[in-house]
Design a protein around this nucleic acid. Structure first.
Lengths: 245, 245
DNA sequence: CCTTGACAGATAATCGATTATTTTGATAGT
DNA sequence: ACTATCAAAATAATCGATTATCTGTCAAGG
């Protein structure tokens, strides 16, 4: 018997760390694979926000049948990246200033709460994971000229933020945070190819992580909140610049 | 009748006040209808927590084909009521002490936050809705001997809590709260047929609502937090009594 | 005994075709 | 011109059958 399953919202077995992939990495069914491909397509902006998803075209594009296509789309609904209406089909969730602002606010609220809980409850392994995630992130160059570096950086950045709060022992909360991070990343991927000049993001991450493993609750939480807030502000500016309502 | 969740994080399509329902209330496709029936079956405990959902049996029970069945189940995954694993199928999300405790904690955190935002941002219409929801709830008898009254009460209770926070102007947050309320209601439906003797729940609701429309932020939030906390404590006791691990 | 592997039955995933619903576009009446 | 109406086309939903995967059982070999 497995000791404990994590109730609702299990950690969604994320992609295996490329290196030691002897454990079957999920992604078995066509539906799953589609979900991944579509998720990437949406977050990267390849599929435009707000646009309708025509099932027939999608079916041909991906060379699959309706069933797995719907299956995949259904998962993206859980992720908040796709919306659905009976008899009207699916569409990519629209973006808006209000939506971005809500995401930022909720991240400040929940991610910070989750960090606090992690610091309160996290064990040594959690600390180790945080430091590793930080190191890997800071060692990765982010060159706007080479898209593949951006993609890699995004992945590690996401991983860092999730690791930071992974010690909180609250699967549902983690699920919510993962969701918000997804939603947020779409804005960054689409609107921010480079960091604003007046920020040293690496250092921000370091400060948060150092504070976290040192269990300096107030400091670390405050840093994280500011980090999230700054990103939100930057994104808002870029959204305005590129003329989104 | 409260229309069930609108798929993704839709901008809070205002629920039609039960009376004037001349507008087609959704529930069009078989998939949607199934989702509702299954949701009710799970929350009411008819489908036991943790149990496997055999597609073939379910297909026969409900007299439908696989496609809409999967469709319906997919929505319950978004609701956190069903879990899924590739090639292993679906199962009703298990319950546990840890799960209940997390739900309670998160409700205290999120729902209170949403209430505060509602008081900060809600307009007069919101106030009216709150008072109406309170009135309807308090006017409804809850008789453990007659299950239909319990069901009705649950519906109005859920409606009250959602209305209370409906003024916050944050669709994603509302979605999260609705989800948590769903998960929480399952515990209450299964384990609490009557209110603990030392509580006057009607009065608790009244105090919260009165404070809310009076914009007494600290008071109302405090009352709500205690309200949620007490329910959590009661449920925990009953869980223990009935011998759940 | 315990492990390993192969078979068979159960179950989930997918497909191609069919049915239902919505949208579009043309036509007739005011 | 403007709206209403209806048929045709586009699109979504569903079905029944087929294929793929998993799970349990049992026999052979260690």
């Amino acid at each position: 018997m497995v000791p404990d399953d994590d109730g609702a919202f299990a950690p969604a077995t994320e992609d295996a760390p490329s290196s030691s992939g002897f454990l079957d990495d999920g992604k078995n069914t066509i539906g799953s694979q589609l979900a991944s491909r579509l998720r990437e397509a949406i977050i990267s902006g390849e599929l435009q926000a707000g646009s309708k998803i025509n099932l027939d075209k999608a079916r041909k594009t991906f060379n699959v049948s309706l069933s797995p296509l719907r299956e995949g789309l259904a998962r993206l609904i859980s992720d908040g990246l796709v919306e659905f209406e009976d008899n009207r089909g699916y569409r990519v969730s629209p973006i808006s200033l209000a939506n971005l602002e809500e995401i930022t606010t909720l991240r400040e609220e929940f991610e910070v709460f989750a960090l606090r809980e992690s610091m309160r409850l996290g064990d040594v392994e959690w600390e180790g994971n945080v430091m590793r995630a930080l190191h890997r992130l800071n060692r990765t160059e982010r060159d706007a000229a080479r898209p593949e570096t951006l993609e890699r950086w995004e992945e590690l950045h996401r991983e860092f933020h999730l690791t930071l709060i992974s010690g909180c022992g609250k699967p549902i909360l983690l699920h919510f945070c993962r969701l918000l991070l997804n939603l947020n990343d779409r804005y960054r991927r689409v609107f921010l190819t480079r960091t604003s000049g007046d920020r040293n993001v690496s250092q921000e991450h370091s400060e948060i992580a150092q504070g976290a493993v040192a269990r300096d609750l107030d400091y670390s939480c405050d840093m994280l909140r500011q980090h999230i807030h700054r990103t939100g502000t930057n994104l808002r500016k870029h959204l305005a610049t590129k003329g989104i309502l």
